[in-house]
Amino acid sequence: MPITRPRRAGPIVLAILVAAAALFALYLWTVLNWSYSEGERAGYLQKLSKKGWLCKTWEGEILLSSMPGAIPERFAFTVRDENVVRQLQASMGQRVQLSYSQHVGLPTTCFGETSYFVDKAMVGGVNPVAPNNT
């Protein structure tokens, strides 16, 4: 009867770890590249700062107001594009219109403190529609 040596668990454990890392990388790529929602918001830029202990991200806040005299709602967002950051820094306190995409399920705040990522900003926002006097 031949003597059989016990199988080593090393290659199996390594294969499981590699598969788990690949699945995590695929998940991360998916949530960063496919957005849950996209849209635009307009309001007055109140805050823009670079925050974080280890991962520094640009975080901002605009105040949305549906009508004059109403209590404004805060909209927090993250900016990853340095060109958009410079544009927003120059428009502090002014009305801005932001185009954003929402990415749900990010595993850490290293990508941003919010799930709303601004990719375009327009200073002044949308001009109000003039009444039709015809």
Rank of each mutant, 00 (worst) to 15 (best):
residue 36 Y to M: 09
residue 29 W to D: 14
residue 72 P to W: 12
residue 71 I to Y: 14
residue 127 N to T: 12
residue 24 F to M: 13
residue 87 Q to S: 10
residue 21 A to G: 11
residue 102 Q to Y: 12
residue 79 V to Y: 02
residue 23 L to C: 10
residue 11 P to L: 11
residue 76 A to T: 03
residue 38 E to W: 04
residue 79 V to R: 05
residue 87 Q to I: 06
residue 75 F to M: 04
residue 105 G to D: 07
residue 124 G to I: 00
residue 85 V to R: 02
residue 31 V to P: 04
residue 51 K to L: 09
residue 87 Q to F: 01
residue 31 V to Y: 05
residue 28 L to T: 10
residue 31 V to G: 05
residue 118 V to K: 00
residue 74 R to L: 07
residue 81 D to W: 05
residue 48 L to F: 08
residue 48 L to H: 03
residue 94 Q to G: 04
residue 15 A to R: 11
residue 61 E to G: 05
residue 75 F to V: 12
residue 35 S to T: 08
residue 13 V to Y: 10
residue 121 A to D: 06
residue 7 R to L: 14
residue 91 S to L: 03
residue 70 A to E: 15
residue 120 K to P: 03
residue 66 S to V: 07
residue 117 F to D: 05
residue 119 D to N: 14
residue 116 Y to L: 00
residue 125 G to Q: 01
residue 20 A to W: 01
residue 95 R to G: 07
residue 114 T to P: 04
residue 94 Q to S: 15
residue 111 F to Q: 07
residue 12 I to E: 10
residue 85 V to E: 01
residue 49 S to I: 11
residue 88 L to V: 05
residue 120 K to S: 14
residue 9 A to K: 13
residue 7 R to P: 04
residue 104 V to N: 06
residue 94 Q to M: 15
residue 113 E to V: 14
residue 131 P to C: 02
residue 71 I to D: 06
residue 28 L to N: 12
residue 125 G to K: 03
residue 2 P to A: 09
residue 117 F to T: 02
residue 32 L to F: 06
residue 97 Q to W: 00
residue 98 L to C: 01
residue 17 L to G: 04
residue 14 L to A: 12
residue 58 W to C: 01
residue 42 A to G: 09
residue 22 A to S: 08
residue 3 I to M: 12
residue 92 M to R: 09
residue 59 E to Y: 01
residue 13 V to K: 12
residue 109 T to S: 11
residue 7 R to Y: 08
residue 90 A to Y: 00
residue 34 W to Q: 04
residue 128 P to E: 00
residue 94 Q to Y: 08
residue 88 L to N: 01
residue 108 T to W: 13
residue 50 K to S: 11
residue 92 M to Y: 13
residue 24 F to A: 15
residue 103 H to I: 01
residue 27 Y to H: 12
residue 31 V to A: 01
residue 99 S to M: 05
residue 117 F to Y: 13
residue 67 M to V: 08
residue 97 Q to T: 06
residue 123 V to F: 03
residue 33 N to H: 13
residue 14 L to G: 10
residue 129 V to Y: 02
residue 68 P to D: 06
residue 33 N to P: 03
residue 8 R to T: 13
residue 70 A to H: 09
residue 129 V to T: 08
residue 89 Q to I: 03
residue 68 P to S: 05
residue 15 A to D: 04
residue 81 D to N: 13
residue 113 E to I: 11
residue 115 S to D: 15
residue 52 G to Y: 07
residue 98 L to K: 05
residue 15 A to M: 07
residue 43 G to P: 10
residue 61 E to C: 13
residue 53 W to I: 15
residue 81 D to I: 00
residue 86 R to W: 01
residue 69 G to D: 04
residue 37 S to W: 07
residue 60 G to F: 09
residue 120 K to R: 15
residue 103 H to M: 00
residue 110 C to G: 01
residue 90 A to D: 07
residue 66 S to K: 14
residue 89 Q to N: 14
residue 27 Y to E: 04
residue 109 T to A: 08
residue 124 G to S: 00
residue 102 Q to S: 12
residue 6 P to A: 09
residue 57 T to R: 15
residue 7 R to V: 11
residue 9 A to S: 12
residue 8 R to C: 12
residue 30 T to P: 02
residue 23 L to S: 11
residue 7 R to E: 15
residue 81 D to R: 01
residue 20 A to M: 09
residue 41 R to Y: 04
residue 122 M to F: 11
residue 111 F to Y: 15
residue 104 V to S: 07
residue 74 R to Y: 12
residue 119 D to C: 05
residue 134 T to G: 05
residue 94 Q to R: 15
residue 47 K to T: 02
residue 114 T to R: 07
residue 69 G to C: 08
residue 27 Y to L: 01
residue 115 S to I: 13
residue 52 G to A: 01
residue 21 A to K: 06
residue 97 Q to V: 05
